[in-house]
């Protein structure tokens, strides 16, 4: 639940989701669910010249299982909170 809770705190912030097919999409995080499926609004593809496939897409749902990375906005990462939450989760099993 750690990352589900963490991603919920990022709702409204801009993130870049990199998929396992190398497609990278930047957008505003709209919502996340327990599977870490992600919904983005105001989306744009990072390399639109190479990937014109999504030109008319403004909002999208990304299946959690196809995510490779999420680039996080530096200002919204409180490392102390993350460390504490991780230790709590490690203890809880």
């Amino acid at each position: 639940m750690l990352f589900y809770s963490y991603f919920k705190t990022l709702v409204g912030k801009e993130v870049t989701v990199e998929l396992k097919n190398d497609l990278a999409i930047t957008g505003v995080l709209h919502s996340v669910d327990q599977y870490l499926n992600i919904k983005l609004t105001s989306t744009r593809v990072v390399d639109e010249a190479k990937y014109p496939h999504m030109m008319s897409v403004r909002n999208c749902f990304i299946r959690g299982s196809v995510v490779r990375y999420v680039h996080l906005p530096p200002g919204s990462v409180d490392v102390e909170i993350l460390h504490d939450a991780t230790r709590r989760e490690a203890k809880g099993g």
Binding site: K20, N21, S56, R58, N59, C60
Partner: peptide
């Protein structure tokens, strides 16, 4: 992998015949 909501106006304005791109991996 992904579901995108299409803006129909933008989509209608696309000239699909002029788009050159490799298929997605």
């Amino acid at each position: 992998a992904m579901v995108g909501e299409i803006d129909e106006e933008t989509d209608a304005s696309l000239d699909l015949q002029s788009i050159r791109a490799a298929p997605l991996k």
